[in-house]
Amino acid sequence: MADLQNELHPTAEAGELPLEAPFEETPYACDPLERARELLTDHPVADGYGTLPWVLRGLPWYDLELGESAVDTDIPRLREGQVGAVLWALRLPGDTAEGAGGDAGRRAVAVTLEQIDLVRAVVDAHPEGLRAARTAGQVIDARNCGRVAVLLGPAGAPALDDSLGVLRILHSLGLRVLTLAGTSWASEAGLSRFGEEVVREMNRLGVVADLSGASDATIVRTLTLSKAPVLCTRSAARALRPHPDNLSDELLSALGRAKGVCMVPLTADQTGPALTDVADHLDHIRAVAGPHAVALSGVYDSPAAHPEGLPDPSAYPHLVTELLRRGWPDTDLTLLTWDNLQRVLRNADFLSRAARSRREPSTARLTELDGGRG
């Protein structure tokens, strides 16, 4: 897919310096950690996956503004880690994660709606630290006001209950990302005809496809079909660690060519037990897919163990410090922490506006396109 954001890197006119030159020449402190913090001041971390809403469901009381020891994520730690935006996943319990219709599908819808309601309540209760956002512009507005932008998603595909109408309702409530896995129409066999229609409707709405946890066949077909760039919200390099949610070099290259983004999870099982292991994955994906195709996901407040040195969101500056030591240029670091996710959101918004002028809401049904298989 052609990059619709070429205007972000205009060609310099004769006699002008490239836009990157003054940025690269900005004087930084000699201390690497202080330099990392200075860089994150203008380009904070956009964290691609956290499950705080799921954890908060089980707490009788919490205060994220003052700090909350029962969770990994609170506002003091987000500020310490210089996090500017978070994607809060809408998890499904194990008994609905593989559901595709019927009672399981209805439970998935209900659980997802309950978490959306909870996220709204959390944001409303912490107006000095958090702000709800749906678009790339609203994310920027939240950052400029000193708030952490909260975006909804990814939600699991079973939460649609095989209905494009439910997809539209979830989008109207703020859903920005949907994981394409765990259903009959996004399975090991790839996307069915109905699954392809789901992707087209997601493009029309501006809902970004998340391919972490999807089969290789689903990933390949979605990259071909989707007009908007996709995310892998919690995937690392399979060449370095053979986790089922990690991506092969072939898939990483295809993701880079499609202008998608692989958001590397800070989990020991997917990246390794140490901060340097995470940096190894970031190095590898940058080399294979390109610097425009890599970003970060804390995966905090999940059952996963985190690498030593990265226990919670406050540790992000230390990871950036390690990358500075490895010679990452400032331009690549700003893509990693902030710009790549913003580009995906902007492209999805732009394509959605164009698609809505050409395409009516889809009325396709699973039974019509796939013969009711489930």
Rank of each mutant, 00 (worst) to 15 (best):
P291N: 07
G156M: 08
A304N: 01
G67S: 11
V166F: 09
T96A: 15
P313V: 14
L251K: 03
G58Y: 12
R193Y: 09
L52H: 01
W61L: 12
T218Q: 08
G146M: 07
P313M: 07
R79A: 11
V320R: 00
F194T: 05
S248T: 13
L319W: 03
L118M: 02
P265T: 07
R286T: 13
S215L: 14
Q115C: 02
L175S: 08
H306R: 03
D370W: 05
G50A: 08
L33C: 09
H284C: 04
V123M: 03
F194Q: 06
L130F: 15
W54Q: 07
L240A: 02
G195L: 06
G94H: 15
S297F: 00
L369D: 07
V207G: 05
T51A: 12
R131H: 12
P291T: 04
R286H: 11
V166K: 09
S163M: 12
E98S: 10
P329T: 12
A289S: 14
A293W: 06
E308S: 06
P361G: 10
T363C: 09
A29H: 03
G58E: 14
P361R: 05
A157S: 11
G256Q: 12
R79N: 15
P311M: 09
D103Y: 05
L8K: 04
A364E: 14
D269I: 13
L92K: 01
D245I: 00
L180P: 05
T179R: 13
P307Q: 01
A104M: 01
R286K: 12
L345E: 11
P53G: 05
G153D: 10
L167I: 08
W61G: 09
A149W: 03
L118C: 01
L173W: 15
A305W: 05
T271W: 00
A132I: 13
R106C: 03
A268S: 09
P93L: 13
V111I: 07
D280V: 04
R143V: 15
G298S: 10
G327P: 01
L87V: 09
V299G: 00
A110M: 12
S184W: 00
L118W: 01
G94V: 13
A355M: 06
P76G: 09
I169E: 14
R176W: 08
